[in-house]
Design a protein around this nucleic acid. Structure first.
Lengths: 251, 251
DNA sequence: TACTTTTCACCTAGGTGCGAAGAT
DNA sequence: ATCTTCGCACCTAGGTGAAAAGTA
C-alpha cells in the first residue's frame, strides 16, 4: 500500500477526492462546530523511488509548520442540521507557503473565520482528521491554534486517507486516477487509453472507494446506550443511505 | 424618473446591480440576522409604452405571491462581524415561478435555511427592503413567512432601489447599462458604440450610483444618545470609506 | 539530480442578453 | 399584440495536469 498523493502549491490546491463525511448520533438540539486539521503521520521526510514505485524514508521531517484548522463553513450548526447533510471538505486547500499572510480567510460563523489554506511540507506523510466540537467547549477554537481536546470534542481519523504531499505527482498511477475521476482534469483524458487493470488499481486505494464516511455517536433520539465497536479512530464506512448508528462516543 | 428593470425567470435571475450595504451602530456583542425581502410599491400592473419611454398603469396587481425572505448567508453573526464587512446580496435571485418547490434552499445558520429565490410578478413595481433582526427577537424568522416587526427588528428601504420586473428588457437604455456594467454581459459590449450621453443617463438612475449604502444605528461604542436624522427609511448613503454614524434607530 | 514554480490549454460551473419560437 | 420561454454564443471565475523553466 503506497498511499495516494496530494499536490500542494503556493496558492493552495484542493484535495482530490475531497473528504466527505456523514454524521449520526449527535444531539439534534446541541450546536456543534465541525473542523478538519491535517497532522503528520511520522517525523520523516520521504522520496519516491521510481524503479521500485515506493516511497522511501529520506531523512527526518522538516521543522513543523504553523498549525491551521479548517473550520467547516456551515459551522456553527445544530446536530440536527449536520446529520441531515453530507459534510464535504471540498473548499479546503493545501499550501506549502509557510508565510501565508492569512489573507485567505473567510467569515465562518459568529466570531470565527475560516482558514481556507492548510500549510504542509512537501514530501511528508499526513493524516487528515475530522473534529466535532460542541459549542460550549469551543472557547479556544481558532484557525491558527490546535484543536482543543477533551470533553465536548471528538476527533476522528480515517487511516485510509493518509496521503503524501508532492509538488508534482510521482506515481503515474496516481496521475491516471486523478485525471480519470476529477472532472476538472477531463481535458487530459485519453479516451483510447489503456484501462486494463484500472479496477485492480482502484481496489488498492481504499481512499477512493466509498466517498462518504460515517462518524457515529451516541444517538440521543433512537437508542439507549448500545455500546458498539466504534472507537472514534476506526469509524464505520457507508457508501450511501442512512448509516446504522453504533455509537460509543459521548458528545 | 422611470426606474430600472430587473429580469425574472423561472430558474431565477440575479439582481444587477446587487444591493450592497454597510452597517454601523450595532452592538458589537449582540447577534443579528440580516435579511432582505421585496414588497410591492403599489397594487398596480404596468406596461411599457415604447414611443413615450414610460411605464403606464395597465390594471390592478395580480394576486399576491407567497412571501419569501432571503436570509443573508452570513447570518447568524455578531454586530462586530457585520459592521466589519460590506453586506452584499448578490446571491439573491428573482423568479416568476410561483410553484417553486423550495428546492432552491441552502443551509443558513443554526436552524435556518436560506431562500435563494424570491417570487415576484412580472410587470409590477417592487421595493427591496433590508432587515436587521436581533437574535433574541428572531423566533418567527423563516424564509416562507413575513419578517416579524417590532422591537429588535429594524427595516430599511432605499427608495432609489425601486424597480420594475420584466421577462425581457423594455427600455433600451436599461439594456445598455446592464451590458456596460455587468461583467457577465461583456460579450454584448460594442467597443465602437456611441457612448455620448452615457454619463447623463447614469445620473438619472440613482440606483447605479453609490453601490454601498449605509444603515445607521445607535453606535454603542463611540457615541452617547446623539439623536440624528435617520428615520430608518431614509438612511444616509456613502460611496466609500467608513460612514459617520448618525444613529436614531435603537437595536 | 531532485524538487519547485510558472505558464498554459482545457476543462467545469454558471451568469449575460439575444433572438427565435411559444403562449395567450 | 403582448408577454414568456428556451437554446445559444459569449462571457466570468476558477480547478486540472503538462511541460518548460527555475532553483539549489
Amino acid at each position: 500500500d503506497i498511499g495516494t498523493e496530494m499536490i500542494i502549491t503556493k496558492a493552495g490546491r484542493r484535495m482530490f477526492p475531497a473528504m466527505r463525511v456523514k454524521i449520526a448520533g449527535l444531539d439534534p438540539h446541541q450546536q456543534y462546530y465541525i473542523a478538519m486539521d491535517i497532522v503528520p503521520v511520522d517525523n520523516k521526510r520521504y522520496r519516491y523511488v521510481y524503479h521500485s514505485s515506493k516511497w522511501m524514508v529520506a531523512g527526518n521531517a522538516d521543522s513543523p509548520v504553523p498549525p491551521r484548522v479548517y473550520i467547516h463553513p456551515d459551522s456553527l450548526a445544530s446536530g440536527d442540521t449536520w446529520m441531515r447533510q453530507v459534510v464535504s471538505f471540498d473548499k479546503l486547500k493545501l499550501t506549502n507557503n509557510e508565510l501565508d499572510d492569512q489573507g485567505h480567510q473567510c467569515y465562518c460563523g459568529p466570531g470565527h473565520v475560516l482558514s481556507l489554506l492548510i500549510i504542509l511540507h512537501s514530501m511528508h506523510k499526513y493524516q487528515p482528521r475530522v473534529h466535532v466540537i460542541r459549542k460550549d467547549f469551543s472557547s479556544e477554537l481558532s484557525p491558527n491554534k490546535p484543536v482543543p481536546s477533551g470533553e465536548g470534542v471528538k476527533t476522528f481519523s480515517f487511516p485510509e486517507t493518509v496521503f503524501t504531499t508532492v509538488t508534482a505527482y510521482q506515481n503515474q498511477q496516481i496521475t491516471r486516477l486523478k485525471i480519470d475521476r476529477n472532472p476538472f482534469a477531463k481535458g487530459f483524458r485519453d479516451s483510447g487509453r489503456n484501462r486494463t487493470g484500472l479496477e485492480a488499481i482502484m481496489e488498492t486505494y481504499a481512499f477512493w472507494r466509498p466517498p462518504v464516511r460515517t462518524l457515529t455517536f451516541e444517538d440521543f433520539t433512537n437508542m439507549q446506550k448500545q455500546q458498539g465497536g466504534s472507537t472514534g479512530t476506526s469509524p464505520t464506512t457507508s457508501s450511501t443511505g442512512t448509516p446504522s448508528p453504533s455509537g460509543a462516543a459521548h458528545l
